[in-house]
Every structure is written in structure tokens, then in C-alpha cells.
Amino acid sequence: MRKGFRTVSGLTAALAVTAGVGVTTAFAATTTTSVDFQTHGFPTVAAQAAIPAGQGATIKAGDATVTIPTGTFSDPVEFELLEGPLSSFAANAPSGQTPVFDFAFKVVDQKTGAIVMKFQKPVMFSLTNTDVNANSMYYNIAPTGTYTLNPVKATISGDTLQHAIAGAPVGWVVTSPATSVAQTTSPITGLPFADWLFVGAALMIGGGVLIAVRRKVS
């Protein structure tokens, strides 16, 4: 396993929030050599694309689309859209919210081999999913798994959420208000063994008493 956790932790201190027009959180550093995305909950490459220098691309993975405009990268890059099991992000989710999509970007400069942390232009993330609604939220995920509400509100239209992203911190999670299974605890999953035992014993003792009394009646 790569020792990327320390690298990311160090970078977190340098986290700079750019709340410009449609621009999201980005690291002050522009590149780093290693980030262990697996440790941070994003072990799966959902989609990837080799993007020539200066060119744009559209990457799709399931319900998600990432649109990369031309001029985003001055060097050729390998762009990966990473995902992790939603259950990994459920425990830290804000109260009343449930994660519906999580993702991270791993962008590797093909010339230098470094991971690109800051983009020259924001890329557009779009998620269309029946779980997305007007109350969905867009969070940054810190290396510790902590949720931080992104300072730029996502644009939501129907079941589509969009957000511009200008850098590649560890990741993001889209949440929606949690729903629950109705009447979860309605099944009676216990058996009153003690009641049966006591009632049975009481009845037997009562019967014994009656039979004992019978012997005295002569």
C-alpha cells in the first residue's frame, strides 16, 4: 500500500477555498506525487480517459458525467473518476442525510507522473439520479472522512445535480434527505417464555393444592 495518507494530511493544511463563480474547493498546491484514494474510501475506477494536452473530454460513469472543457490541462493527463461504496460514507453523513453518490478525481500528468491537484479551468460534474431532489446537498470529504458543506451551492434541476470543480481534493459526496423503512420495529421478535413458565407453574401448583385439599376432605 502506498503511503499517501501523510501526503494528503499535509496538503489538507494547505487547503484553500475558492468561492468564485461556480468554482469549488481546491488545493493550494497544484501537484503532488501520491494520494492513497483507496484509503480514503474511493477504491474503484468507475471511468477513465486519456486526455491530450489542451483538449476536452466527457467522462461518464453510471449516473454521473464529468465534462472537461478544452484548455483544462496543459499537459496530457490520465483522468480517472473514482468511486467508493456508499456505505463507507454513511456513518459520517450529516444527520438526516444519506449519501447517494460519492466520487473523487485522480488526474495524473503523463509528462511528470505527478497527481494534478488544481485545474486551469473548472470541470463540470453532473449527476442524474432518482435519489437527487431539491434538498440534495453537495459536500467535500476530508481525508478523515469528515463532511464539509461545499461553499458553492450545487445547481439542482429535477433529478439532476451539477457542480463545477476546479481541483481534486480527496473527494465529494452528494447526499439527499434520508428516508426510512416504515414500521421497522413492528415485528414482535420475542417470545414470553418467562410468562409461560410462571403461568404454567402457578396453574400446576394450584392444581396440586386442590388435590391436596381433596385428600383432607373425608
Binding site: 456508499l86 454513511a90 444519506t98 449519501p99 435519489d131 428516508t179 423503512v181 416504515a182 421497522t184 420495529t185
Partner: peptide, 10 residues
């Protein structure tokens, strides 16, 4: 009793 478990999106 009375607490409901979350309905997960997975």
C-alpha cells in the same frame, strides 16, 4: 421500539 432504520440508496 418505534425507531426506523434508514432506507439506503444501495
Amino acid at each position: 421500539v418505534g425507531t426506523n432504520v434508514p432506507n439506503t440508496p444501495y
